[in-house]
Structure formats: structure tokens, C-alpha cells
Design a binder for these strands. Structure first.
Length: 634
RNA sequence: GCCGAAGUAGCUCAGUGGCAGAGCAACGCACUCGUAAUGCGUAGGCCGGGGGUUCAAAUCCCCUCUUCGGCUCCA
């Protein structure tokens, strides 16, 4: 007998050689039905493996991410099989599970069409109905190379050759289809219920543009139709909230052919933007920052000195003035540094926190542009903190607190990642080590959990990234804190210490919103355009029932304006239902319906977005309510 | 930048070689109306741009720009 330890810590005995499936069946028929694969002593395995020694077992179902991965990966194999049936001679790339689905890369002479996807999906249904078992075989490297080599599977051969010496090479077969695969897989193709092919895209073999472009088909699958429907609904919802669509509908901003990647902000977009910036200025003033503004175009020599010329040139724009080379700034730091250097500093002055809503330009690949989320010019809510080495941890914690305060106001949750030295980096390993440790220490002092991203830092220093989560569960990188021991060196920054000697300050680069443009894009999608009152371009819309209400409507508007409430009047000759519908589509938080009754009683009939008709009340009380909501950033 | 798709009225879209269309929006007129679309009428187009094929091009071919979906990159 062998002892099996379950996830909950309970232990049970089984005869040696009992399969994982048998064990699942023994626990409950329901679990056996839902079981997809298992983790045996932490290693993912098929349900068919026999257990020969005391082990811990975790049965994987669709409820866990790992279970979903197995499920989707098996679906990817089914898709590959379908493609092989319909397109003989296809060569296979890779076909992993990804968040919410899977993909498989194919090398086919002709590009797939949307109709092909339908055919492939139908063929997949057929394979599922055939309920073919997934069978695992382990082969030697030679056998594997021979098998895939003879089949002309050049990509698989490349993969096999790149496997480490000691790797166990396994293949999975379902029916006539066999694929190189580490597994595990669901027991049989019939286990897959609802499949859907989502879209089609080109993708380079191994992600390198030096390699051949393969055809990638994305798909997803779920054990229940209702789950698939829910997923499709979420995608629809994301589409419905697309900031590019809402941005046009709500007249916030536009993109023009004359400036690809350079957004145009319209009056209503500017209201939103200015609210964000006002809030930002208030908070930064409170946190001890001083605002500066530095030029957009600066001399080449500055960029050579900062290292951007060597490390960032491909993303920069250049110009020539009076026969001298200039660059359009892609970052604000050199400008901030020049401000610091413009006078002598005492250790008593430090830390100096210089904030700048700086307009930067970066040459992004044309294919990467995406609404406000990926643009070629944007405003960073930047700041550079110059400090004593002894102040580093305290300052970093201060920035973390500031960022935390901001995200709470918008109702965003977030997580933190720490990025370390990249390949293209300046400076010695020792400096990087020191800077990275300082960031870790700040995170740990504040008791924050974090994930490490090896090699993902900026070229001048390691960084902490803040990833916020929107209401659809998507994450966006916004805030970052980057520690920099290098720029102070390059620019020979110093301060006069207690000893009267020059010393080198340490520098932090940090942003909270990241890019104002992108943050606005995120807000649009997060709120589906229905902004909280304090951010709404129009906070109150006054709707007259007949033109007898016009005079009173103007009085109301004046009162709103006196109270710093953004109002608008709709006095057109239209039915009230029509005006309400329009204001509703504009997502205005409050409407005031003004008919004869209101004119007579000097009241306003309030209609609130999302709640409907709230009835009549006096104007002063309504103004108070709205003012309080604005002040409370509701 | 690369692969694929698309670009027709302000918006959403129809129009596959023979007179450029619809709905919504806009404008005009009538209706003075109570919580998500009143009716009638009018106007609106270099069919993204350039070149070519053709008696004839929104439509076929070439180039180019932009957008969209990906790859890649990142705030």
C-alpha cells in the first residue's frame, strides 16, 4: 500500500500502481468527472499514470488556472489535428495555452481565411465527438528527431534540438495525430465541450522577425457552453468599452491621419484631463514636490551625455537648428537634471523633488499604435527626486504611498513588480545590485508582495512597476519608480555635505499615472465612459420640457457655474424623452428636468445616471449634494 | 517595421465594370410636449491619396497613407 496526501492535508492508502484517475474516482464521482489532469508531488501528470510510491496529489479541474491550461492545451492539439486533416502538408509550430485560451502556429503555403476557421472549428467538433484518447509515449532524442524529421516537421526538429540534454522527450497521440509535447493532457478529446476559434494573426516563428511568419489561430474552450458565452460576453463588453470608440462618441479626443499616434484632445477631453492634472498638482504639492517645465527640444550633446543617444536613439526624433543637431525629448530626466544643476545644493536642501508634466515623443512602431494606449507623444506625470543615499528608502516609501493614494481614488486594485538589470544596461553589476536591493528593502519595509521580472529594468536602473486592475480584470502598467545611480554620475551631480565637500546625490525617476493619455484611456474603459461626477466633462444637464422653462433653466445654469459645477442646457424644441435619451447616451451623471411645475415651485426634477427619476427637490439642496460629491471625488 | 484585413456622407453600413445609396445625426417647417427616439421636408460625397487597365472604375491592377487584428516593443 502507498500513502496519498491530498491538497487539504488528508491522507489515504491505496494499493501500489493505482492510477490517479482511480484515486479521483474513489474520492467522488463528481471529481472524477471534472478531473482533467493532476499534480503528483508537484509535477503535472496525466490522469492515467499509476502511482507507485507515497505521494501528494492535487487533482486539477477547470476551477484552477493550471487545470484550465491543460484543458486549453489539449484543445490546441485538437485544433492542430483538425488543421492537419484539412490542410495536408501543414507544418506545426508551437501551440500553448494562454490566458483565456490557446493558440497554435501553422506553416501553410496559403493564408487561412475566416471561412477556413469555420471549417477547422467544425472538424474540431468532429474530433471531439470521436472521443479519441490522448496517449503519451516517451521517446529517445534520436527517435524523436527521426520521427519528426521524416515527417518534415522542421520546427519540431528545431525544438527537439534545443531541449536540454537530460530532458524527457514525450509525444502525445490522439487518433492519427501525433505531436511533440510535454503534457499533460485531458484523458480524451471528448472531454472538451465548447470550443471557439477567436482570431487569426501572423506570428514570427519564435517571436523573431528574422524568422518566417507563421499563421497563428487563437481559440478558446470551456467545459460548459454557459462559461464560453460568459467569456464571449466579457470580450463584447471590452469592445463596448473600447476607449477609441467611446472617445469619439463622447467627443473626448480624436486621431487624425495627419498625425498618426499623436492624439488631439477635444474640449470635453481637456476637462477630464485638467481635472486629473489639478488633482495631481494638489497631491504633489502636499507631498513636497515642486513643479518645473523643461523644453521639448534639446541639444544632441545632452542626449549623448545622458546615454540616450547610445541606448534609446531608435525611439527618438531629431531635428536640426542653425546647423546643430537636436533631439525631441523621449524622457524628461535630462531636463530635470539641468534644473538641479542650475545651482549649488546643500545637503540641507535634500531631498529635492522636481515634478514635471512633461511632453515626450517616442518613435513607436507604426503597427504598435493603439488609441491613447500606445501613442507617439504623451505627457508623463514625471518627477525626479534628488537625495542623500541615506534618504533612499524613505523616499521610495513616500512614492509608494503617493501612488497608493492615487489609485484608491479611482477604485483600482494593483500589484507590484520589480524589474532587474537588462542586457542593454549602463553601469556595473555592483551599482545595479545596490539599487535593486534598495528597492526591495522599501517594498519589504512597507510589507508589499511583489513579483520579480528579471532583465526588465530601464537601461539606467532597476524599477518597481505598478500594475493596476480594471473592472474587467485586465491589468495595465502605470506607475513606476526607478532608482538611478548612473545619471548623477554622468552629469556630475553633487551637493555640499556637512563636511563642506562635494558628494554625489542619488536620483529617483517616478510616475504615478504613467502617461496621462493612457491613464485617460484606462479610465474611459474602466468606467465605460460613465465617469464619476468629479471627472465628468458635463456634470449636470438641464433639460427643458417646453420653452416656457428656458428662462429658469438659464438661472439654474448660472447657479451651477457660481458653484463650480459644469452644466449645460438643452433648450431645443424636442420632446423631453428625446433629450433624456441623448443626455443618457452622453453619460451625464445628473439631468435636471424643467417643466412648468419646477418653474412655478422653483425646484428641479433630478434624474441620476443609473438610478433614474429621483423626483423634485430645491436647487440649493441639489447643488450641495453635487458639490459634496465633487469634493469627495465620487 | 513585419503578416493579414479594412478605408464609400459627421456616425453605422449597403453598393463586384455602366447615373453613388440607406438608417441615424445635421439643417428647415409643423407640433409646446413630463423622464431613453414626434412627423414631414432639405441638404450633404474627389468612394483615403497617386498612377494604370478600359469606351466606361467606388468596383480590376500597381504604389502609397491611415485604421483594425496580431508579432514585437513599452508609459
Amino acid at each position: 500500500m502507498i500513502k496519498i496526501t491530498f491538497r487539504d492535508g488528508s491522507i489515504k492508502e491505496y494499493p501500489q500502481g493505482t492510477t490517479v484517475m482511480d484515486i479521483a474516482r474513489d474520492i467522488s464521482p463528481g471529481l472524477a468527472r471534472n478531473a482533467l489532469a493532476a499534480k503528483l508531488n508537484g509535477r503535472k501528470v496525466d490522469l492515467t499514470v499509476p502511482v507507485n510510491e507515497d505521494s501528494s496529489i492535487d487533482i486539477l479541474t477547470f476551477d484552477s488556472e493550471e487545470g484550465q491550461d491543460v484543458y486549453r492545451h489539449s484543445t490546441a492539439h485538437i485544433m492542430a489535428q483538425a488543421v492537419q486533416r484539412l490542410f495536408p502538408g501543414v507544418k506545426f509550430g508551437i501551440g500553448p495555452a494562454i490566458t483565456d485560451g490557446y493558440y497554435y502556429d501553422f506553416d501553410v503555403p496559403e493564408n487561412f481565411s475566416p471561412e477556413d476557421l469555420e471549417r477547422i472549428e467544425e472538424e474540431m467538433q468532429k474530433i471531439i465527438r470521436e472521443d479519441r484518447p490522448f496517449e503519451r509515449t516517451e521517446v529517445s532524442r534520436e527517435e524523436a528527431l527521426k520521427m519528426f524529421g521524416e515527417a518534415g516537421e522542421i520546427y519540431k526538429v528545431e525544438l527537439i534540438n534545443d531541449l536540454p540534454e537530460d530532458a524527457v522527450i514525450s509525444c502525445y497521440r490522439q487518433g492519427e495525430f501525433i505531436d511533440l509535447c510535454a503534457g499533460p493532457h485531458v484523458p480524451s478529446t471528448g472531454k472538451i465541450k465548447s470550443v471557439k476559434l477567436m482570431n487569426l494573426a501572423g506570428a514570427y516563428w519564435r517571436g523573431s522577425e528574422k524568422n518566417k511568419m507563421l499563421q497563428r489561430i487563437y481559440g478558446t474552450s470551456f467545459p460548459k457552453k454557459s462559461l464560453l458565452d460568459e467569456h464571449l460576453y466579457r470580450i463584447e463588453e471590452a469592445k463596448r468599452r473600447d476607449h477609441r470608440k467611446l472617445g469619439a462618441e463622447l467627443d473626448l479626443f480624436s486621431m487624425q491621419d495627419e498625425g498618426p499616434g499623436f492624439p488631439f484632445f477635444h474640449p470635453k477631453g481637456m476637462v477630464l484631463r485638467n481635472e486629473l492634472e489639478d488633482f495631481w498638482r494638489q497631491e504633489h504639492k502636499k507631498a513636497g514636490y515642486h513643479e518645473i517645465r523643461t523644453p521639448v527640444i534639446l541639444n544632441r550633446s545632452l542626449w549623448e551625455q545622458s546615454g540616450h543617444w547610445d541606448h534609446y536613439r531608435e525611439n527618438m526624433y531629431f531635428t536640426n537648428i542653425d546647423d546643430l543637431d537636436y533631439a525631441v525629448k523621449p524622457m524628461n530626466c535630462p531636463g530635470g537634471i539641468l534644473v538641479y544643476k542650475s545651482k549649488l545644493h546643500s545637503y540641507r536642501d535634500l531631498p529635492i523633488r522636481l515634478a514635471e508634466l512633461g511632453l515626450v515623443h517616442r518613435h513607436e512602431l507604426s503597427g504598435a499604435l493603439h488609441g491613447l494606449m500606445r501613442v507617439r507623444c504623451f505627457n508623463q506625470d514625471d518627477a525626479h527626486i534628488f537625495m542623500l543615499p541615506s534618504q533612499v528608502t524613505y523616499e521610495i516609501i513616500g512614492v509608494i504611498d503617493l501612488i497608493d493614494r492615487f489609485y484608491r481614488v479611482f477604485g483600482f486594485e494593483y500589484h507590484v513588480e520589480l524589474s532587474t538589470k537588462p542586457e542593454k544596461a549602463m553601469g556595473s553589476d555592483e551599482i545595479w545590485e545596490m539599487a535593486t536591493e534598495a528597492l526591495k528593502k522599501a517594498l519589504e519595509t512597507r510589507g508589499m508582495e511583489y513579483k520579480i521580472n528579471e532583465g526588465d529594468g530601464a537601461f539606467y536602473g532597476p524599477k518597481i512597476d505598478f500594475h493596476l486592475r480594471d473592472c474587467l480584470g485586465r491589468t495595465w502598467q502605470c506607475g513606476t519608480i526607478q532608482l538611478d545611480f548612473l545619471m548623477p554620475e554622468k552629469f556630475d551631480l553633487n551637493y555640499i555635505g556637512e563636511d563642506g565637500q562635494k558628494h554625489r546625490p542619488v536620483m529617483i525617476h517616478r510616475v504615478v499615472f504613467g502617461s496621462i493619455e493612457r491613464f485617460i484611456g484606462i479610465l474611459i474603459e474602466h468606467f465605460a465612459g460613465a465617469f464619476p461626477v468629479w471627472l465628468s466633462p458635463v456634470q449636470v444637464k438641464i433639460l427643458t420640457v417646453t420653452d416656457r422653462g428656458l428662462k429658469y433653466a438659464r438661472e439654474i445654469l448660472a447657479t451651477l457655474e457660481d458653484n463650480d459645477i459644469r452644466g449645460e442646457t438643452d433648450g431645443r424644441n424636442e420632446k423631453i424623452g428625446y433629450k433624456i435619451r441623448e443626455a443618457q447616451l452622453e453619460k451625464v451623471p445628473y439631468m435636471l428636468v424643467i417643466g412648468d411645475r419646477e418653474v412655478e415651485n422653483r425646484t428641479v426634477a433630478v434624474r441620476k445616471r443609473g438610478e433614474g427619476d429621483l423626483g423634485a427637490r430645491d436647487l440649493a439642496g441639489f447643488v450641495e449634494t453635487v458639490k459634496n460629491e465633487i469634493a469627495g471625488k465620487c
